[in-house]
Nucleic acid binder design. Structure first.
Length: 885
RNA sequence: GGUCGGUUAGCUCAGUUGGUAGAGCGUUUCGUUGACAUCGAAGAGGUCGCUGGUUCGAACCCAGUACCGACCACCA
């Protein structure tokens, strides 16, 4: 028995436990079936579920449950990511709060501590995914730092190295002085900052290196402190102002170093004075200019962006911003400051550390991404992998075609340590294991050689790039790798196309020689109600679990799905969630109605045989809804899929079918009752199955709560088969609905008391209408609140409301009960609308261009419509006339 | 500077092969009829940003334009 009121909280946990304990999510249940694989973007192991996860995973679960119902062998691979920087950050903060730091602790102890934290908080996110209803195969859960997966990561590294695609290079990197690690281009965020533009002048010197009085060259900078590392001045080769100065030198203030003036296209004559200071060790552009002009590279900063020993003693140890102040003051004191202007410019920030990134000269490991990108681009161009919506392919191409070498080494401790060992002379051995490194090293240096392992770890995305096959067991040759790779679909947000999707494409094609997935569905971002990006600092974060708590996971999932229209961000609205909770209640009550009338469940996939028109009709409606949802989901149109099943369930099944069958159950005809029970049971089952991907919990509860013998839980039921639609039945019920709606509308507008019953007298009825009136009499009477309805040849129109349904005119004698003025106004309004439409159609049909050029069926439709409208107009006019003045 | 998206009812948004606009919420009126007031019935509300073009016909295609947003690159 179903409880009187539906309360999600009571049943959701129960069903999830049930599914999990019966291995309902396990892959391989249908070995003969076509496979369907999705790998879940691995959330940070110590993270918490936010609205983005809720959307991403709801959509994946909808697809997974849909395909499971369709009989495919589905694998939804789940797992978590070690999230190098993020996790290490959290643990370091904890240490900090306890007055400790990792350096004192030592690497081994620190890593132990991180594992402890992982053990402690790692269950949060997976519990939350369960709460959401995610039907992923937990028996296959993986972690990016599992032994097997880690072996794969190292193998990947070694293979790249051996193929010449992984190399060490000494160049400028984006250095985070807070976290003291290199980061990749993608982890840098440009932010607009209002700062200053300082104009300085550097004195020119003569051939002997002595300052020439009153001869200066003016430069401008937003970062005065870097001037200590200046090793040149660049001017444009065709800049007339400086032609004579090229090749001469200036004396760098505060430092005293003589630096050359060089000609380089990089200098923009339009900018500032046209001369630009060059600091090759602290600016990406200057680095290139320095290389081209053979300038010295002087690194003046240490790992925390304080001035190092290459700076004049006075500034050593100063933080970069302290140094800036001191240097500006000193330059001003020395008469080198020309002016200071306010200036707004973009400044790079580290996305994790939140401090200004310093271009810093260090040796790091790089992946030759431009080479790996070639196949990854080709795979999308040739359609082996498709993006949906397609416009994201452009974004992908744009980045891939301009890709730069990928810096993958991180000066962290938490992560996959780089498998490179160094001999005392610096010779590097890149191997999967230490033993192997020693074997190689001993062959070269003898048995006494002592190797030291590279201290750095790999970028987290380097390992998550292997997710689509690493989780299947690679580098082992497992049956799962053969069976589930390539994956069918990837579902993710556009914000990680570069970070993750692109890297998986490259690594998948490189390692597996095939694309990682055939389709990539890119969804939008979830924003707050006002459209602002949710962020902790803004305090506008909506916790999905609050909604789950309040309205149920089903309601949240349905909301996210119905708001997921391609190409647009989602503005999360509590009202919507509430509305879909109400939808759940509506379904619940409809099921209770069924139960009360002896309807339990149907184990038939095929629609039952129906003799009653109204049963034939609802079967046809099911077919149309099932087809609509199927097509929509196949095309990733989640909003369309949800809307279709929503409107069928509420607008057709509850609003009309349930109302129309009530008289059957009140009647005496047992055969009719039985047929209707069977049909209703089948229809309800189809609704439950179609709705199950969106609302897994309530559908499972009703499925099992109706008292029917079930072969399986609904999670393993079968998706409806699309069958024939009885057009005649559809037309009949369509007419019934229109008739009832017209009468109700008239009554409401005439302010007829709800309790008053009238007799409907129908004139001008065709044979078909006459038949319909007879066939549907009781339903019409009940739902339109009529005493009775009958077809007559003529009737007294005095004081009667009149309405037109198709060819017939319906009279409702309600003298005394209705407002005659209102009736006249109503008829005039109807006439107005009709004649306007008719006029427009007439105009179109009178246009030779239209009748000649438009397709025949369009013209025919227009003609038929016009004659219908004209007939209606006549009837309305007649009705108005009958009403008199 | 480059790329992409958006502009439709009071609000949030649908509307893919161009044929006279839909939903949810909100709002107004009515309703305690035997699943459901987390409900039912009925209604009001839109020259689809602007200008031009293509077409018999444009919310939809093309060009231009305004405003909003995102991403990438850059401004010494």
């Amino acid at each position: 028995m179903l409880e009187k009121t539906y309360s999600p909280a009571d049943i959701e946990a129960k069903w999830y436990d049930h599914w999990e304990s019966t291995d309902a999510f396990a892959c391989g249940r249908n070995q003969g079936g076509e496979t369907y694989t999705i790998v879940m973007p691995p959330p940070n192991v110590t993270g918490n579920l936010h609205m983005g996860h809720a959307l991403d995973n709801s959509l994946q679960d909808i697809l997974i449950r849909f395909e499971r119902l369709r009989g495919k062998d589905v694998l939804w691979q789940v797992g978590t990511d070690h999230a190098g920087i993020a996790t290490q950050n959290i643990v370091e903060k904890q240490l900090d709060a306890a007055g400790l730091n990792r350096k004192d602790m030592g690497r081994e102890k620190f890593i132990e501590r991180v594992w402890d934290w992982k053990a402690e908080s790692g269950g949060n996110i997976t519990r939350q995914l369960r709460r959401l209803g995610a039907s992923c195969d937990w028996s296959r859960e993986r972690f990016t730092m599992d032994t097997g997966f880690s072996a794969g990561v190292l193998k990947f590294f070694v293979k790249l190295y051996n193929d010449g695609l992984m190399y060490k290079d000494n160049r400028l990197v984006n250095w985070d002085p807070k976290l003291k690690t290199a980061i990749s281009d993608l982890e840098v965020e440009q932010k607009e900052v209002s700062g200053h533009f300082w104009h300085f002048r550097y004195p020119l010197v003569d051939a002997q290196g002595d300052i020439i009085k009153n001869k200066f060259i003016e430069i401008a900078t937003t970062r005065p402190e870097t001037m200590l590392g200046d090793t040149g001045i660049a001017v444009h080769p065709s800049d007339e102002r400086y032609k004579d100065l090229i090749g001469q030198q200036v004396k760098l203030p505060l430092v005293g170093r003589l630096i050359p003036i060089v000609a380089d296209d990089y200098a923009d004559p339009e900018q500032g004075s046209g001369a630009v200071k060059i600091t090759p060790a602290h600016d990406f552009n200057d680095f290139e200019v320095g290389k081209r002009n053979d300038l010295e590279m002087i690194n003046i900063l240490d790992e925390s962006a304080s001035l190092n020993r290459n700076a004049p003693e006075k500034y050593q140890g100063m933080d970069r911003y302290q140094a800036r102040k001191a240097i500006v003051a000193d330059l001003e004191g020395g008469g080198f400051l020309v002016k200071v202007e306010p200036h707004t410019h973009m400044v790079p920030y580290g996305d994790r550390g939140g401090v200004v990134i310093e271009p810093w000269l260090t040796e790091q490991w790089y992946v030759d991404a431009p080479k790996l990108a070639v196949k990854a681009i080709e795979a999308v161009e040739t359609g082996k992998t498709n993006f949906i919506p397609k416009n994201w392919e452009k974004t992908y191409y744009q980045w891939m075609r301009n890709i730069t070498p990928w810096c993958v080494s991180r000066q962290l401790w938490w992560g996959h340590q780089i498998p490179a060992w160094y001999a005392p002379d610096g010779t590097v051995f890149v191997c999967e294991t230490e033993g192997e490194a020693y074997t190689q090293a001993q062959a070269k240096f003898g048995n006494d050689v002592v190797l030291e392992r590279d201290k750095d770890v790999l970028d987290t995305w380097f390992s998550s790039g292997l997710w689509p096959f690493g989780t299947l067991g690679w580098p082992e040759k497992t049956p799962e790798v053969d069976r589930y790779y390539p994956n069918a679909t990837l579902v993710t947000g556009f914000d990680i196309i570069f970070f993750w999707v692109a890297r998986m494409m490259m690594s998948g094609l490189y390692i597996m020689d095939d694309v990682p997935f055939k389709k990539v569905y890119i969804h939008a971002l979830v924003r707050d109600e006002k459209g602002a990006k949710m962020s902790k600092s803004k305090g506008n974060v909506i916790d999905p679990l609050d909604f789950v708590e309040k309205y149920g996971a089903d309601a949240l999932r349905f909301t996210l799905s119905s708001m997921e229209a391609q190409g647009r961000d989602i503005k999360m609205s509590e009202k919507r969630v509430e509305g879909y909770r109400n939808f759940g209640t509506k379904l619940w009550n409809a099921a209770r109605f069924c139960e009360m009338n002896g309807i339990s469940g149907s184990n038939s996939l095929k629609p039952p045989t129906a003799t009653l028109t109204l049963n034939k009709w609802i079967i046809g409606e099911v077919m149309q809804a099932a087809q609509g949802v199927t097509k929509a989901l196949e095309a990733f149109k989640f909003n369309e899929a949800s809307d279709t099943i929503y409107h069928f369930t509420w607008g057709k099944f509850c609003d009309w079918y349930v109302e129309l069958i009530k008289p059957v159950f009140w009647g005496e005809d047992e055969e009719q009752k039985q047929e209707t029970r069977v049909v209703t049971a089948w229809v309800l089952d189809q609704i439950l199955v179609i709705l199950h991907p969106f609302m897994p919990f309530i559908t499972e509860e009703i499925w099992n709560g109706l008292g029917a013998q079930r072969d399986t839980d609904i999670i393993h039921a079968r998706w409806p088969e699309i069958g024939a639609v009885d057009a005649a039945a559809m037309a009949d019920v369509d007419w019934v609905i229109r008739f009832i709606t017209e009468v109700r509308s008239t009554r409401a507008e005439m302010n007829v008391p709800a309790g008053a019953k009238a007799t409907a007298l129908i004139t001008g009825a065709s044979k078909q209408t006459q038949r319909r009136v007879t066939d549907w009499h009781d339903m019409l009477a009940r739902l339109a609140r009529l005493e009775k309805a009958e077809c007559v040849t003529s009737a007294d129109t005095n004081g009667a409301a009149q309405l037109v349904v198709d060819e017939a005119t319906v009279l409702l004698p309600l003298a005394g009960l209705m407002d005659l003025g209102a009736e006249k106004a109503r008829l005039n309004k109807a006439l107005d609308k009709t004649s306007k439409e008719a006029a427009s159609l007439k105009g179109r049909l009178g246009n030779k261009g239209f009748t000649d050029k438009a397709p025949a069926h369009v013209v025919k439709d227009a003609q038929e419509q016009l004659s219908e409208l004209e007939a209606q107009m006549q009837k309305l006019q007649a009705a108005i006339q009958r009403l008199g003045d």
